[in-house]
Computed example of a mutant assay.
Amino acid sequence: MEVMCEVCQSQLPKYKCPSCRIVYCSLGCWKSHKESSCSHQRKENDEPNISIEKKEEYYFQTEDTVPIEKLQLLRESEGLRDILRNPHVRDMLSAIDSSPNPAAAMKAAMLEPIFVEFADKCLELVEPSSQKT
């Protein structure tokens, strides 16, 4: 079963709202959603929203699933929070998240030193034993 645009319910979605994660198909649907129903709007100068829902377990785990305890370390990291204050990093993360080809978008982002710093900080917290000094 294909997922349809959550705004107009008539087209296949191409985009995802960076605030609340609904999928939509066009600029018109995005504008309509933003004006009327986006419940997670964030002002440009707000702190990055890096909260995590507290769940006991995942519904769909894979070998790449990060344990909840490690996600908590990411949430509490001041160093990561400092990096996420950079709007350029947030824009890159949004672009990767909404990309039809996230692997290619990630590869392109890894050419940016600030994004490499972000990725290294995440790995340092999630997999500290894999970091070589």
Rank of each mutant, 00 (worst) to 15 (best):
M1E: 15
V3N: 08
V3H: 07
E6S: 13
Q9G: 07
P13K: 04
K14W: 00
C20R: 01
V23F: 11
C25S: 03
L27N: 11
L27A: 06
G28R: 09
S32P: 00
S32K: 12
H33R: 02
E35M: 05
S39Y: 07
H40W: 04
Q41I: 13
E44P: 04
N45I: 10
N45E: 15
D46S: 13
D46A: 12
D46W: 06
E47D: 11
I50L: 14
K54Q: 10
E56K: 08
E56W: 05
E57R: 14
E57D: 15
Q61S: 12
K70P: 00
L74S: 03
R75P: 00
R75G: 00
E78Q: 10
E78R: 10
D82R: 13
P87T: 01
H88E: 11
R90E: 04
D91G: 11
D91Q: 15
M92G: 03
I96H: 02
D97S: 12
S98R: 08
N101I: 10
P102I: 09
A103F: 11
A105I: 07
A109Y: 01
A109F: 03
E112K: 06
P113V: 03
I114Y: 06
F115M: 15
V116H: 02
A119M: 12
C122Q: 10
L123Q: 09
E124P: 00
S129F: 06
S130K: 15
Q131V: 15
